[in-house]
Design a protein around this nucleic acid. Sequence first.
DNA 1: GCTAAGACTTCCCATCATGGGAAGGTCAAG
DNA 2: CTTGACCTTCCCATGATGGGAAGTCTTAGC
Lengths: 150, 150
Amino acid sequence: MNIGQASDASGVSAKMIRYYEQIGLIRPAGRTDTNYRSFSERDLNDLRFIKRGRALGFSIEEITNLLSLWRDRTRPSREVKAIADGHVADLRTRIAEMQAMADTLSALSECCAGDERPDCPILSDLAAGPRPVAPTSAESRRLRAPRRPS
Amino acid sequence: MNIGQASDASGVSAKMIRYYEQIGLIRPAGRTDTNYRSFSERDLNDLRFIKRGRALGFSIEEITNLLSLWRDRTRPSREVKAIADGHVADLRTRIAEMQAMADTLSALSECCAGDERPDCPILSDLAAGPRPVAPTSAESRRLRAPRRPS
DNA sequence: GCTAAGACTTCCCATCATGGGAAGGTCAAG
DNA sequence: CTTGACCTTCCCATGATGGGAAGTCTTAGC
């Protein structure tokens, strides 16, 4: 099974499969005599595991740990749970931050006529910034720009 | 007013001020005869505007547009509102995605004993992935790993 | 006036996960 | 044997931010 088939079967792009191999997340795939990568069922299972982990928002680092726990039949479920719970806490924190942004902005937007006139509470807020509230918890971490990936 | 003072007064790091200048988000600051940047009150206002925009999650690109609308006294508030509403929609989409992740994960976590035993529904889910649900809307866009920036 | 500390300058590198694309080798169907 | 679809590696870009080096400048204390 070559990389294209592995990609189709796992939902992980060929680019990403090569990347995961490069950073050591997955074992180097076998090679044919013409240097094509060759994937086994087991490799596929790993790729599907990774795919699902990413879909749940786990970072590559967390997935590295989850993968090694998965392979360890004597793992304590405590460790798995700790990773998952940590991730959930992270998600909830970020959700709350984004929720606060969305709420603030939609309140401002509701007060904006949205017509040809220049008066706009949204700009006024950005300019005067009466946002005297407590130092946004978001300021203590890297502030990602919630961007639509085009 | 040099860059350190401008940074303190605006809350934008010196690094970021230089970056914003480099990418053309702000006008190049004046220079002293010894090549130090020199900031005016107006520059400060721009920096504060940017700072607040970032705190609301606007991307640099959106802020670029908001800044030029802000400077244009004949802007139609419609345009400002469109940017804000677009951003709010983006936020809400991402919130929903992360919420779904968090809900799925915490449901799994609740079923996990979290003790010394190896049995773990979280790993089972990642491995077997009975996640047959509709193609997560998240899969159509770049999937960010919700990472805590340490 | 001299010196040391601190702040400024530019320049390069790293992050994280992903995609784009070039240049060249390989495979399978016609 | 050609053609097109695949594979390989390698380099580059993203977005917003920080780290740090090497060199210049300023300021406070002596």
